[in-house]
Amino acid sequence: MWALARQGYLEVRARLLRAAVGDEGMSTVEYAIGTIAAAAFGAVLYGVVTGDSIVNALTKIIDKALNTTV
């Protein structure tokens, strides 16, 4: 009986190791998700940077720095 339980344990362990270590088909999905995330982040960043509030804030900072008296 113990031999049968040990054999079952070893089979389950081997399956878990193959599932944890094996990466068949995962690289393509990971690259696709990473590419989509990067494109979305770029779109959001572009929208924020080209917005009026950011341009106005940067202009004020530059004007303040150029008009500072020492």
Results as ranks from 00 to 15, higher is better:
Val21Pro: 00
Gly8Asp: 11
Gly25Gln: 01
Thr69Met: 09
Gly25Arg: 01
Ala37Tyr: 09
Ala37Gly: 08
Lys60Asn: 11
Arg6Ser: 07
Arg6Asn: 07
Lys60Tyr: 15
Gln7Leu: 14
Ile62His: 08
Ala39Ser: 08
Glu30Gln: 05
Val44Gly: 03
Gly47Phe: 02
Ile62Glu: 12
Gly42Val: 00
Ala32Asp: 12
Lys60Leu: 15
Val48Ala: 10
Met1Asp: 12
Arg6Gln: 09
Ala5Pro: 00
Ala20His: 03
Leu45Phe: 14
Ala57Phe: 12
Thr28His: 07
Thr59Met: 01
Gly22Ile: 06
Leu58Asp: 09
Arg18Ala: 09
Ala32Arg: 08
Val49Asn: 04
Leu16Ala: 02
Ile54Ser: 04
Phe41Leu: 13
Thr50Pro: 03
Ala57Gln: 10
Val70Ala: 15
Gly22Leu: 04
Asp23Pro: 01
Ala20Ile: 04
Leu58Tyr: 07
Asp52Cys: 03
Phe41Asn: 10
Tyr46Pro: 03
Gly42Thr: 06
Val44Ser: 05
Ile36Ala: 13
Met26Ile: 02
Val55Ile: 14
Tyr31Cys: 05
Arg6Ala: 07
Leu58Met: 13
Glu30Cys: 00
Ile61Gly: 09
Ala43Leu: 15
Val29Thr: 05
Gly34Arg: 13
Ile36Gly: 01
Gly51Leu: 01
Asp23Leu: 01
Lys60Ser: 11
Arg13Cys: 00
Ala20Asn: 02
Gly42His: 02
Val21Ser: 03
Tyr31Thr: 08
Ala43Val: 10
Asn67Arg: 12
Val21Asp: 02
Ala3Thr: 15
Ile54Asn: 00
Ala38Asn: 08
Val70Ile: 13
Arg18Glu: 11
Gln7Lys: 10
Arg6Glu: 12
Gln7Ser: 14
Thr50Trp: 08
